[in-house]
């Protein structure tokens, strides 16, 4: 097995190899053991400073990254756009350069503009981790999703994964597709035609508009929320209608011959894409996903940091 990632930054799953993904999973296995100890901390990143730059709202990802950094003993600086000089008209590059001149080694960034992490990676000398850029990618979410699937199903080669919901506006969907295809899984995306990109099959996935058939077929259903905040026009008549056709409830689940594992990256809109009794059911691994998120983010931070010599 490789001992080093092929890349200095984690900008997207598209830009890393299958071997990188496997190395991250192997490392995450060991960090999962660490975070289940009474003392959940290792000293590896004690000389590393990480800046978490969140230009867009986040709860889970931000806490997960911060926990991962602290459990690796890194020093952490938090930044959120709402409380910063961005509001006073500062450019992204200026903001980040100012933060870097305070000697920051790694940057975890969420930004509403697709490609913002790439823009930084081309211009500054720090490891960049993309924590979600617009509708483009959310690589660590895809890693923790695939890792959680692997825990349930073993090797993902040939396994059947359905991604259900607002595919068009979802960076989670795109990163999931890249990751799952690299690991050899079969992927079907399912949702209303207006919420699935026209040429998505060029990524090697199949498209279905029928929720019941998709669920019968799948080993895992990764369910996404409707991203109303990114929808500039009306893509669906109403959330109620969406929920009738594409929402998963207990009655639907109970009527299936084969019930897939239910996943959701959060935040859940209960009663829209998942009913509460499904989200909390024995088929759901939503809370395991959150735990695996910390372990996988620790692995990414550790592996990127290990590429750099102490300056």
């Amino acid at each position: 097995m490789n001992q080093q990632l092929s890349t200095k930054h984690l900008l997207g799953i598209k830009y890393i190899t299958k071997e990188d993904i496997e190395l991250i999973f192997h490392t995450a296995d060991n960090f999962k053991e660490v975070i289940n100890r009474p003392i959940k901390k290792v000293p590896s990143l004690r000389d590393v400073t990480v800046a978490n730059l969140f230009f867009e709202n986040s709860t889970r990802t931000r806490i997960s990254f911060e926990l991962a950094e602290k459990r690796l003993s890194a020093d952490v600086v938090n930044f959120s756009a709402a409380a910063s000089s961005v509001k006073k008209g500062e450019t992204l590059l200026d903001t980040v350069n100012n933060i870097l001149s305070m000697k920051v080694d790694m940057v975890v960034m969420r930004h509403p503009a697709p490609g913002a992490p790439q823009f930084l990676a081309d211009r500054i000398d720090a490891n960049i981790i993309n924590a979600g850029d617009g509708t483009h990618e959310h690589p660590t979410q895809a890693l923790l999703d695939a890792y959680s699937m692997r825990e349930q199903l073993g090797n993902l080669k040939g396994k059947k994964i359905a991604i259900i919901g607002d595919i068009k506006h979802s960076r989670v969907a795109l990163s999931n597709i890249y990751c799952l295809k690299k690991l050899g899984a079969k992927v079907v995306v399912c949702g209303p035609p207006t919420l699935i990109q026209k040429h998505i099959s060029t990524l090697g996935v199949d498209v279905s508009y029928n929720l019941r058939e998709t669920l019968e077929w799948a080993d895992v259903a990764n369910v996404l929320r409707i991203q109303l905040e990114r929808q500039d026009i009306q893509y669906i008549p109403s959330l109620r209608e969406y929920s009738q056709y594409y929402g998963i409830n207990r009655a639907l689940l109970d009527s299936l011959k084969n019930v897939p594992v239910i996943m959701h990256p959060g935040p859940i809109n209960r009663g829209v894409e998942l009913s509460s009794d499904v989200a909390d059911s024995e088929h759901s691994i939503i809370l395991q996903q959150v735990e695996n998120g910390v372990a996988n983010r620790m692995a990414v931070l550790y592996l990127l940091a290990s590429r750099e010599k102490l300056k």
Partner: peptide, 18 residues
């Protein structure tokens, strides 16, 4: 994860299980 040569050696080491 406890080694004192992290970010100092040429090739990173791969962890084993605890």
């Amino acid at each position: 994860f406890y080694r004192d040569d992290f970010r100092r050696r040429d090739t990173p080491l791969s962890p084993s299980s605890t």
